[in-house]
């Protein structure tokens, strides 16, 4: 079996005495597309930032992050070593394409820069040519090379960020909510470009989002995070059709607008008068960091919680497929 591209073991992230991410294990195989889902404040972005070593100064990670082809641990590595890896072996697409690009540099120079810094193109001319090629791959016209970021729309900017991320054929591409700020038709295009991009380079993909439908479309495997912990993981089809953790179950129910409008059909015909189906919700809200309950992090919002949940549930299943819940949803769940 080929070694995994990314191996994260026992990742903890804390700020002073508040634990933000606890004991996250995560592997991404070669060419695999893995999704990381959860609500705001569940620790998804912190996990991604600690892989890249981009956490703010007072936020401290511990544990182990190994990347294929790199002979040292990324956690605790010095800045010089990390900056040789970032943009070459490991690239990221951020949520806000507006802030990810340099407003004072032309698009072409920004794409070429990443290749010149890592010496993957010998000369400036070669890098420019490669930049034009990359621009073509993300279906943008070549005359945008001389444009500045403010001249582009959100979707165009996100495609530029993607072109920069893919410039050096990274082993792993991390996307943090890359399409949240975009319209649906543009989102469809950007998602397709991301998937085509990683497929063409056989790069691995770690895709972070809170949109379950997007994850289901893009990824093969998914990890569900809540309260800084991975609460469930497995192949997309299995997790989304037969969720075991109560949080996953709640998320699925809350995001399924289709099921909430059952096949009765009468609501469509009779305007307004028929009683509407309600969406299923998870009671309460995500607590602030450091205010999650001890034991099972979800127990204060869970309808199945018992006294047993005051102890941290053990991981059931294999490292890649399993859940951490004392009262898992059974197969009886329709």
């Amino acid at each position: 079996m080929t070694p995994d591209v990314l191996t994260v073991q026992g990742l903890n992230v804390s700020v002073r005495d508040t634990q933000l991410v606890s004991d996250v294990d995560l592997t991404v195989g070669p060419g695999e597309r893995v999704g990381l889902i959860g609500e705001s404040g569940s620790g998804k972005s912190l996990t991604a930032l600690s892989i890249l070593g981009l956490l703010p100064d007072d936020v401290v990670p511990s544990g182990s992050v190994r990347l294929t082809g790199i002979d040292h641990d990324l956690i605790g590595a010095d800045e010089r070593a990390l900056s040789r890896i970032r943009g070459r072996d490991l690239a990221m697409v951020f949520q806000e394409p507006m802030t990810a690009l340099n407003p004072t540099m032309r698009i072409g120079d920004q794409i070429a820069e990443s290749m010149l810094i890592h010496h993957t193109q010998p000369t400036r001319t070669a890098a420019r040519a490669a930049a034009a090629d990359l621009l073509d791959r993300v279906q943008l016209p070549a005359d945008l090379l001389r444009a500045y970021p403010h001249q582009l729309s959100g979707g165009q900017r996100q495609r530029i960020v993607l072109a920069i991320a893919l410039a050096n054929d990274p082993a792993l591409l991390i996307c943090d909510e890359p399409t949240t700020a975009l319209d649906v038709t543009v989102q469809a295009l950007v998602l397709d470009l991301i998937v085509q991009g990683v497929l063409a380079r056989s790069s691995a993909l770690l895709f972070i989002t809170h949109d379950l439908a997007v994850v289901a479309t893009v990824c093969e495997r998914v990890l569900v995070m809540y309260g800084g912990r991975v609460v469930e993981s497995g192949p997309v089809h299995e997790v989304f059709t037969n969720p075991r953790h109560r949080y996953t179950q709640g998320l699925l129910a809350a995001s399924n607008l289709e099921a909430a409008a059952p096949a009765s059909g009468r609501t469509n015909l009779q305007a307004g008068t028929a009683s509407r189906p309600r969406l299923t919700t998870i009671p309460g809200t995500v607590p602030a960091a450091g205010h999650f309950p001890s034991g099972c992090v979800f127990r204060n919002r869970c309808t199945h919680a018992t006294d047993l949940c005051a102890t941290t549930p053990a991981w059931s299943g294999t490292p890649t497929t399993g859940y951490a819940c004392h009262h898992p949803a059974g197969a009886s769940h329709a």
């Binding site: 649906v184 989102q187 469809a188 998602l191 397709d192 439908a213 893009v218 997309v236 289709e258």
Partner: peptide
């Protein structure tokens, strides 16, 4: 057709 839905994704729809 651009709206990603769980049902379509689980029945094998891709980004294309």
């Amino acid at each position: 057709s651009a709206i990603p839905t769980l049902e379509r994704a689980l029945s094998g729809a891709t980004t294309a």
